Computed example of a mutant assay.
Amino acid sequence: MNILYVEDNKINAMVMDKMLSKNNSNVFIAENGSQALKVVKEKNLDLILVDINLGLNQMDGCELLERFKKLDYLENIPVFAVTAYAMPGDEQRFIKIGFDKYFSKPVNFDKLLSAISTIGVS
């Protein structure tokens, strides 16, 4: 499975890469929205994981999702929010915006892997 993880925190990116790689996934890391938009053009992806806060003066994960939704070749690719936003109502807010699933940090990898296992890979 080819997974893009959009995350500006290098440690979080490294942990996610290590965990998903153990599950035989190829993980591509983008530190910001601009890098993510390049990766989606270049790689055949099965899943995109997006942090919401991608740093000062950068597009955030919600803006990035909006751009992804405009790209025809991503229309069948699920996009999961992976975020430190974990207050009551945050999950519903991000699902309503258009994310397919929501995971708060620190990520419960068993739940994430379970959600990933439901994705049909072509």
Rank of each mutant, 00 (worst) to 15 (best):
L4F: 09
L4Y: 08
Y5I: 00
Y5E: 00
V6P: 02
V6I: 12
N9K: 01
K10E: 12
I11N: 08
I11V: 11
N12R: 01
N12M: 04
A13W: 07
M14D: 14
M14I: 07
V15Y: 07
D17V: 00
D17K: 13
D17R: 11
L20A: 00
L20R: 02
L20S: 02
L20P: 01
L20C: 01
L20G: 00
S21Q: 05
K22S: 01
K22T: 03
K22H: 02
N23L: 02
S25K: 07
S25V: 01
S25Q: 04
S25W: 03
N26K: 15
N26W: 14
V27A: 06
F28A: 00
A30E: 08
A30L: 06
E31N: 14
N32E: 03
N32L: 01
G33P: 02
S34W: 14
K38E: 15
K38G: 13
V39Q: 06
E42W: 12
E42K: 11
K43H: 15
N44F: 13
L47P: 07
I48H: 02
L49W: 06
V50W: 07
I52K: 10
N53M: 11
L54R: 02
L54Y: 03
G55C: 04
G55M: 03
L56F: 14
L56V: 13
L56P: 15
L56W: 13
N57E: 09
N57T: 06
N57A: 08
M59A: 05
M59E: 13
D60S: 05
G61I: 05
G61T: 07
G61M: 04
C62N: 10
E63V: 06
E63P: 13
L64Q: 06
L64D: 09
L64C: 08
L65F: 04
E66N: 14
R67F: 10
R67I: 12
F68W: 12
K69C: 06
K70C: 11
L71S: 05
D72A: 11
D72P: 15
Y73T: 03
L74P: 04
L74T: 09
L74K: 10
E75S: 15
I77L: 02
I77Q: 01
V79D: 03
F80K: 00
A81T: 01
A81Y: 01
A81V: 00
T83W: 04
A84G: 13
A84Q: 07
A84E: 09
Y85M: 08
A86P: 06
M87V: 07
M87L: 09
M87E: 12
M87R: 11
G89P: 04
D90K: 10
D90C: 11
Q92Y: 14
Q92F: 14
R93A: 07
F94Q: 03
F94K: 01
F94I: 03
F94R: 02
I95M: 11
I95Q: 02
K96D: 15
K96H: 15
K96C: 05
I97T: 13
F99Y: 03
D100S: 11
K101P: 06
K101D: 05
F103D: 00
S104G: 11
K105R: 08
K105S: 03
V107L: 02
V107E: 13
V107R: 03
N108Q: 10
N108W: 11
D110R: 05
K111A: 12
K111R: 13
L113E: 07
L113M: 08
S114A: 03
S114N: 09
A115H: 04
S117I: 10
S117R: 12
T118P: 10
T118W: 12
G120F: 15
S122C: 13
